[in-house]
Design a binder for these strands. Sequence first.
DNA 1: TGTACATCAGTGAACGCGCGTTCACTGATGTAC
DNA 2: TGTACATCAGTGAACGCGCGTTCACTGATGTAC
Lengths: 216, 216
Amino acid sequence: MTAQDKQQLAEARDQTSDALRKERYHHGDLRECLIEATRRLVEDKGADKFSVSEACRLAGVSTAAPYKHFRDRNDMLVAMVIAGMMRHRERMFAAIKDLPSGSPLRIKALGQEYVDFALNEPGVFRLKFGGYTDRLTDPQLEEIGQATFEIVLREVAACLGQTDITADVRQRGFMLWSFVHGLSFLLHDQKLSDMGGDIDLDFMLGDIAERILRDV
Amino acid sequence: MTAQDKQQLAEARDQTSDALRKERYHHGDLRECLIEATRRLVEDKGADKFSVSEACRLAGVSTAAPYKHFRDRNDMLVAMVIAGMMRHRERMFAAIKDLPSGSPLRIKALGQEYVDFALNEPGVFRLKFGGYTDRLTDPQLEEIGQATFEIVLREVAACLGQTDITADVRQRGFMLWSFVHGLSFLLHDQKLSDMGGDIDLDFMLGDIAERILRDV
DNA sequence: TGTACATCAGTGAACGCGCGTTCACTGATGTAC
DNA sequence: TGTACATCAGTGAACGCGCGTTCACTGATGTAC
């Protein structure tokens, strides 16, 4: 192994985060394992019923083990939601990547993806948005949320043939967000099937995108 | 006191519900008092942090007392939410009573009232709609919800110059509901002030009503 | 290379806590005669 | 009217439970020489 090789290796190691390296010690990746246990429990029973003890049982470790990786219960939930939001972002990019830029179809696809995420991961979605007190307040979470909304705003601007994010663009973006956000909650609560008659979800997503993007 | 007077009195007594009469025995109206305590706690700490014990402390009775009026903890929450929904209905009627029928202003006013309720009673609103598991499932709750949505549908039909609630009316009504529903959650989470720039809430409510009522 | 040492992920037991619900009871109130 | 009785709202103590977090510890692994 040459000196150069060694240096490259050292650089690669430095790029791996401290947290990840630590986990290799015993369990291997208890942190990731606990995040996954947290996710499953939140999906199964909801965030308010989630308990550290049960996550430990799922992961097969003692109840004290998580405190080597997370500050407290809340920190576990935050870490899990951050992972969820990253998944959500990836899927958003994937949803629009083959659609013509500036097309309302991209707005519709983003809306569809929002609803899909809410339906696929209702526990995570509601933990992120459904809390009343003890809202998850974490700078990183805030940052990811902002950045994700910016994606939508850029798409709205493109549809309107604009390059800047004007007040008008921001309002239309916010209206779209409000709509798919509320729709997600109502779908969770079965309100569309109970009270919507035979409304077609796909049609409605396209219809609202057109209505909100249309000039007055 | 004549025989007729006595009969009238007896009739008046019969009209009073059994439940209410019973409560006059000792405390007077412990049931109402516990519902109010439940409401305050849910507003202060959220439904998942609400405890029977604390409601008892607020009402100044022993922890066993509520079980003379409610089946269990869940029953207390249901009773409180039902009371909240009745308030909401009353305010909806008040909001539109002076506006010309068939006008989009009535739709806007109903939307405004929806958001107002969500902002004034966030704890109750989120208990009704924010739960993931252990959703409140009560036939009476369901019935009130349906009836309330029907009010909106009738207004939408009137705006479109229709008398029947067609599939089109139902879809537009559902789109309006989704919008104000999501908007309410986002307002709770401060998303409008954090990420909405200087969007005017009042303008947005009027704008979305127009867009959704407009012909394609 | 082999060995001695340092690190620190995970253990197991314990803690204090507030919870929802139950139980036999008490005593204020309404009612029948 | 006065009295004896029945009702049942509210009591106070107890229960078993699972929780979040802490602590001194153990022992597997990485590292320096």
